[in-house]
Write a protein that binds this DNA or RNA. Structure first.
Length: 399
RNA sequence: GCGUCGGUACUCAAGUGGUCAACGAGGGCAGACUGUAAAUCUGCUGACUUCGGUCUUCGGAAGUUCGAAUCUUCCCCGGCGCACCA
């Protein structure tokens, strides 16, 4: 099935889209007119890995790239380097430029599954420290004079904090301005981002309008969450990292709630919308086992970030391990010495966080000797050359 | 600047001299049941331990006390009100 240009256009402006400002028609018209647009996505370069949540707007950016538009991946290194002083607890992880570059290298590798960094229309990477880092107080003031306090307070996060009597620091008003200024500095036509970034992106739209009289469009994407609004585990748990192994990725998808299946297909895969609609209908009519659909989703995702073959073997591994309860073929191998305590082995190899945690696992009956097929109930058991299952997902082989 | 209330573990939030590693809720983890789903039930949720205990933690520092998250002093940070308002 080949898509017509109109199909592609419709896909761009509807698939996974939460909102388009000023309007869907505005963007459609630009594209139909054959304008070559410059569109960007800002990302926060704080960690070494990208996750599926980052991948959603990135996919949209990739759609624009495929359609011939110029795309920019903007590293928000400036804010990452100064850190956010509001967050007192997290000891202000101030990134050095070196770290940012290291993260970028990882991102590029991970993002290259979606975006093209080579060829004629390659994705460009920019750093916002380049312009934000050069601004002096006068520049900042003139920027700040573009926006009113009332406009800032429209943001419901601020509204809520006022109601709750919680502090709002002046510099927090600067973050939307900084992000917004990126649009001005790069003089873009559009921006894509998660629905949670709407305020900041619109701030950039306002700035671009008032400073350059240019109408930037903002395309926001739905967040990956189920119908109850339960987001994909922000806290690692089941948040798929693009660098996850095929097995990890497959397993994490399988632990998603059913309500995530359709959003997952729509936001994270290239499965055509028409087919997704079919799937959705069959789920509603209970004519299929949601598990099987989820397996298809897991396979599709693994194939996207790894390969078809790896997806296949991840699935086989999943079936044999979790459905037939066979011992998985691939597991972490740890060399041991006779007489080592299993607890020590697990702690030193970061299988568990502490001995206390290990003891808890034992108390909960969460550690199984796979060869004898029995649960460990002695926390001081010595490590032997066998295989253990620790919790739901951890498998180790001692050699 | 003055007054007043407040700062407790991942988050919210009790506790206001010993029974406090700290109620409860959410989250997370694990077990049972399952489809590594949901719902439900149960347990766990600072670290070390010879499982008797030991050590570290309630914004920070010092102090009172046999004993402090709880009292005192100083400091840091915030909310609200008043004052100031070039």
């Amino acid at each position: 099935m080949t898509m017509t240009e109109e199909d592609i256009l419709q896909d761009i402006v509807t698939r996974g889209v939460a909102n388009i400002y000023p309007s869907k028609g505005f963007v459609e018209a630009k594209i139909r007119r054959g304008e070559k647009l410059t569109i960007y996505l800002g990302i926060d370069p704080t960690g070494p890995t990208l996750h599926l949540g980052n991948a959603i707007p990135m996919k949209k950016l990739a759609d624009f790239q495929k359609a011939g538009h110029k795309v920019i991946l903007l590293m928000g290194d400036f804010t990452a380097m100064i850190g956010d002083p509001t967050d007192k607890s997290s000891a202000r992880v101030q990134l050095t430029h070196k770290q940012v570059l290291a993260n970028l290298k990882n991102y590029k590798k991970q993002a290259s599954k979606l975006l093209s960094f080579s060829g004629r229309n390659k994705a460009e990477i920019k750093f916002n420290s380049k312009w934000l880092g050069k601004m002096n107080f006068a520049d900042v003031l003139s920027l700040a004079s573009q926006m009113t306090v009332q406009q800032m307070l429209e943001r419901d996060m601020f509204e809520r904090r006022i109601e709750e009597g919680k502090p709002i620091f002046i510099h927090e008003f600067m973050y939307p301005l900084m992000q917004g200024y990126d649009s001005v500095a790069m003089n873009v036509d559009g921006e894509v981002g998660g629905n949670d970034q709407t305020f900041n992106m619109l701030c950039g739209r306002d700035l671009l309008k008032s400073m350059k009289n240019k109408e930037k469009f903002v395309l926001t994407l739905k967040l990956l969450e189920d119908s109850t609004g339960k987001k994909m585990g922000k806290t690692e748990g089941n948040m798929v990292a693009l660098s996850d192994t095929p097995e990890e990725m497959y397993g994490k998808v399988m632990s998603w709630s059913d309500g995530m299946i359709i959003p997952g297909f729509e936001l994270c895969t290239n499965v055509p919308l028409s087919e997704i609609l079919e799937i959705s209908k069959s789920l509603e009519s209970n004519s299929v086992n949601p598990r099987d659909i989820k397996m298809k989703l897991a396979r599709t995702l693994v194939a996207l970030y790894h390969t078809e073959a790896k997806a296949q073997s991840a699935e086989e591994n999943f079936i044999s391990t979790f459905q037939k309860h066979e011992i998985p073929s691939d597991m972490i191998e740890i060399k041991i010495h006779e007489g080592d305590l299993l607890a020590d082995v697990c702690v030193t190899h970061n299988v568990v966080k502490s001995k206390t945690e290990f003891n808890r696992f034992v108390e909960n009956g969460a550690i199984t000797d796979l060869q004898k097929n029995e649960k460990i109930n002695d926390p001081k058991i010595r490590a032997t050359k066998t295989e253990y299952k620790i919790g739901k997902t951890r498998f180790i082989r001692l050699v």
